[in-house]
Design a protein around this nucleic acid. Structure first.
Length: 255
DNA sequence: ATGGCGGCACAATGCCGA
């Protein structure tokens, strides 16, 4: 079973790429972020026609998440019952006995911004939700755009980024707190190429210069770790015409 | 050098993302 996450930066624009990528890759579960579509505009028929069931929760212009699956989707929860939030950033469902949590964690904008305080509170709420869900569903995977580069090796230029949003100590501490719930970064279970990232700025030839960050992650609960046989970042869609600034992360679970 | 690029909207300039 392959599970993946991809921030598509507008599903309206990126739908053809999502369908092409799913044709090229035998993915069972794909978590999307930044769909930027209200639910009435969600391309349900196209995704069903591609052989996927899908659940989604969106809003106008910003945010929006979805879970696509080749297998039945059960016990769906939209948003975080433990954290009141207008923004559509969280979706939880059970697929093949695994609790899948799809998250678009806030960006935070800058350390001085109100959005940064919102990010930290949102992360607290996510922590509590993960704790509760893991107690009920020991096999849990958290996939999404975390907007956190956990370590300096996840940053193209750590000196330039020091103290900035996405790498600040409170954000990294929130990531560690999730690890302390027993969740493991699937990417770091395996030997990986150096300087491999999941996001590159559209500006300054960011992708060609490899000026990127690893901010899209798959965290696995302890029972899933021994079942995980691979975790890769697929840079191929970032090379396509009119790409998202993020590229997919895929984990293979041998159930 | 705080902008560049790209998506979006009460759209032709401003907000936001990361």
């Amino acid at each position: 079973m392959k599970i993946a996450t991809w921030n598509v930066n507008s599903l309206k624009v990126r739908l053809p790429q999502v369908l092409q990528w799913l044709t090229d890759n035998p993915i069972d579960v794909l978590c999307l972020q930044e769909t930027k579509l209200t639910d009435d505009k969600f391309p349900l028929a196209e995704i069903n026609a591609a052989g996927y069931q899908v659940v989604f929760t969106g809003q106008k212009t910003y945010n929006g998440v979805a879970i696509l699956s080749r297998h039945p989707i059960e016990d769906v929860v939209k948003n975080n019952p433990l954290f009141e939030d207008e923004q559509q950033r969280l979706l939880t469902a059970t697929i093949n006995g695994i609790r899948i949590v799809c998250a678009y964690i806030p960006n935070g904008q800058s350390l001085e911004s109100d959005k940064y305080q919102y990010k930290l509170k949102w992360l607290n709420g996510l922590h509590d939700w993960l704790q509760q869900q893991q107690a009920q569903h020991p096999k849990l995977a958290l996939l999404g755009d975390y907007n956190i580069a956990p370590e300096d090796r996840d940053v193209h230029d750590p000196a330039a980024w020091e103290g900035q949003v996405l790498v600040s100590p409170p954000e990294r501490a929130a990531f560690v707190r999730m690890q302390e719930l027993g969740l493991t970064d699937a990417f770091r279970l395996f030997e990986q190429p150096e300087r491999l990232f999941s996001w590159w700025d559209y500006r300054q030839m960011g992708f060609r210069m490899n000026k990127g960050l690893r901010i899209d992650h798959i965290l696995l609960s302890a029972p899933l770790v021994p079942l995980c046989s691979a975790c890769i970042i697929d840079k191929v869609p970032r090379k396509w015409e009119q790409p998202s600034d993020h590229t997919p992360v895929i984990a293979t679970l041998d159930l």
